[in-house]
Design a protein around this nucleic acid. Structure first.
Lengths: 167, 167
DNA sequence: TTGGAATGTCAACAACACTGACATAAACTG
DNA sequence: CAGTTTATGTCAGTGTTGTTGACATTCCAA
């Protein structure tokens, strides 16, 4: 099937891509790919006895400097107690600073310090390098499809958070 | 842009899709999508005080009945102590049986019991339903791109394991 | 001003990963 | 056969990350 992109080929494809076998391949691809996705940052984090939770917090604080704890909570989808433990160590280690809100003194606004930004850059560079290689391998059209499927896989509230970050 | 697939359009796309901003969107899409990917099984598992580790074991035992502990270890990428804790509970709860190998009596071959298969089906159905909806939303071409990028994101050994499962 | 909602912190606990050490049995090797 | 390697399982200890419960602070509205 060298020139197999016939009408028939496409027809069978659009019928077949929803079979359980096809779906299972997608499920397993997600499982393995996510391991690859986190492997590089994980290695760096392990050296400094941080984990993925720290990475996620750093990532989204960098993404939205001045964000509140509550806002971060809704993005990360964990309990405030869980996030708080991570933030406490990051603040204690001088990677993040927490400023009491001026309008609402209950709120804490979060910022990366220079040191925090340095770690963020290191982690991002590693993760982006793999992403860049994968994108380059796969090509622009595949990347478009990749994003389309991922977005379709999200819950409504995740899709909202994801869209909000792209503003 | 109905006929917008011009050389220029493509040119700018192939330049832009590797920008840091594009890559970051991909990274965040992976983060949110993976949450969606695991959300449905997680809910089911939580009711019976199992976790993702149990799901993964059940999935791959179902995928390759009679697989050995060692083989499972290389697929899951965890330590034997970690896997053993999970297998012990699954065997104890009657979802998995472990048979001493006939050729090599050191090996344990793993199988799902009827009860194990029932749980596997419940979990798979939930996860596939979301996957099916996402695939349907995105269309066959996007799905092809999705898989291409995911595979490009894997390490070599994961890609090997993934390919092996597709035989 | 009083009560409730929102925000954040501290303490304790469970799940699940890790390392290290060790035991057992079987297979392989010289 | 003796010694080594392989496959598996177990025990103990540790760390990250999630959970719930209890509590303090701040804001706002009745």
């Amino acid at each position: 099937m060298p020139e197999g992109r016939t009408g028939q080929g496409y027809g069978s494809e659009s019928l077949l891509f929803l079979t359980d076998e096809q779906l299972r391949q997608g499920i397993e691809a997600m499982f393995f790919a996510y391991r690859g996705f986190t492997a590089d940052p994980d290695r760096i984090l392990a050296e400094m006895s941080y984990g993925r939770a720290h990475h996620r917090a750093i990532h989204f604080i960098n993404r939205s400097p001045g964000t509140t704890v509550n806002n971060l909570l809704s993005i990360l989808g964990v309990t405030k107690q869980s996030l708080n433990r991570v933030l406490r160590t990051l603040i204690g280690d001088g990677l993040v600073i927490s400023k009491v809100g001026e309008l609402d003194k209950r709120e804490r606004h979060l910022y990366l310090t220079d040191q925090g930004q340095a770690l963020e850059a290191t982690l991002s560079d590693a993760q982006r390098a793999r992403m860049r290689a994968a994108y380059k391998d796969a090509g622009p059209e595949a990347v478009q499809g990749f994003k389309t499927v991922l977005e379709a896989m999200m819950d409504a509230d995740m899709r909202r958070a994801y869209a909000k970050l792209r503003d």
